[in-house]
């Protein structure tokens, strides 16, 4: 009897009532999607658009086609930046084994271990600006600690941040300090999740040292390694603040990376070339896209498993 009445009442139910369940997820997604579109997706296409123009950011833009990209191809400063980006990507990855090493070292129960862990994590907590300043003073050729220490061994002062040969490596080293701490904390949490039974089983089978690490511990740390890899790659490509603080891209542009060069030509004190800056941004975006696509692909594969 009641069943007969039901269809009628559903007809009277509002459209909202009927579709509530189906719509709700989209409603919850809407604010995020909206902001993501406005602040990320649309600007990407705008950048493509601006990169085809000659524009000083103030007057009228003129369309120049692929001229900016053609010029990039003949710009030695662009190749210097690109080369430095490659160095950053390669050397920054050292943070992963270094972080793992420290994590393994700290993963023990000794009195006060928490203090040691916090001390090792400290560089990641302080601002990149402070890290940059500390290392700038450390490298200072007149009073820097590095050259004082080199002096003990009779080695002459090295002008790390003022010499085009060393400057990029000097900055990468400064960047590795907090990045290593970050990877360490990722591995420390990962180590907490390592299954003690498997370790025990490995011990019974007489696995020790490297073999234990390689075959039993590391496979269980795979998720942590993946995240460490992702944040390190992204960190290397975003390396802007340290360069800005420590050298401003100098001496004579030899420590620039793409992100800094883009800032310099488009937005800095002397920069009025929005189109050219946008072209550099597009190149940087394409490089990042390779990594992002790879990360998304591996996550997708992981989830399907």
């Amino acid at each position: 009897m009641t069943q007969a009445a039901l269809p009628q009442s559903t007809v009277r139910k509002s459209w909202w009532r009927r579709n509530q369940i189906a719509i709700t997820p989209y409603l919850f997604l809407a604010p995020g999607v909206l902001f993501f579109a406005v602040y990320v997706i649309i600007p990407i296409f705008q950048s493509f658009g601006i990169s085809l123009q000659d524009w000083d950011g103030l007057g009228q833009p003129t369309y120049v086609g692929l001229e900016n990209y053609r010029e990039l191809g003949n710009d030695p400063a662009f190749y210097t930046s690109l080369k430095n980006n490659v160095w950053w990507l390669l050397l920054y990855l050292l943070a992963i084994p270094a972080g793992l090493g420290i994590a393994l070292f700290l993963n023990q129960t000794v009195t006060g271990i928490r203090i040691y862990k916090s001390l090792f994590f400290f560089p990641f907590v302080i601002s990149q600006v402070v890290v940059g300043l500390v290392f700038t003073w450390f490298y200072d050729p007149a009073f820097g600690l590095l050259n004082v220490m080199l002096g003990w061994f009779g080695a002459g002062p090295i002008n790390v941040l003022g010499d085009p040969r060393y400057v990029t490596f000097g900055i990468i080293l400064a960047g590795l300090w907090p990045q290593t701490a970050y990877c360490m904390i990722l591995y420390l949490t990962g180590l907490n999740a390592v299954n003690p039974e498997q370790i025990e089983a490995g011990r019974l089978d007489n696995a020790k040292g490297w073999r234990m690490l390689w075959h039993i511990v590391l496979p269980q740390l795979k998720p942590a390694t993946f995240i460490a890899f992702v944040v390190t790659i992204i960190g290397a490509l975003r390396s802007f603040d340290l360069i800005s603080i420590m050298t401003q891209g100098g001496p004579f542009g030899s420590s620039r990376v793409l992100s800094f060069y883009m800032f310099e030509v488009a937005l800095s004190e002397y920069g009025f070339r929005m189109g050219y800056g946008a072209a550099i941004a597009v190149v940087l975006f394409l490089i990042m896209l390779c990594f992002i696509a790879y990360f998304l692909f591996s996550m997708y594969r992981e989830e399907r498993r």
Binding site: G162, P164, G250, P251, F252, G253, E264, E269, Y270, G271, F272, R273
Partner: peptide, 22 residues
Amino acid sequence: FDRDAPAEMAKVAMEGFQQFMV
């Protein structure tokens, strides 16, 4: 120099001066 020359030229040129000094 950086007020007499256009901004972009000033930047490129002063970078050149610095390189020349080294």
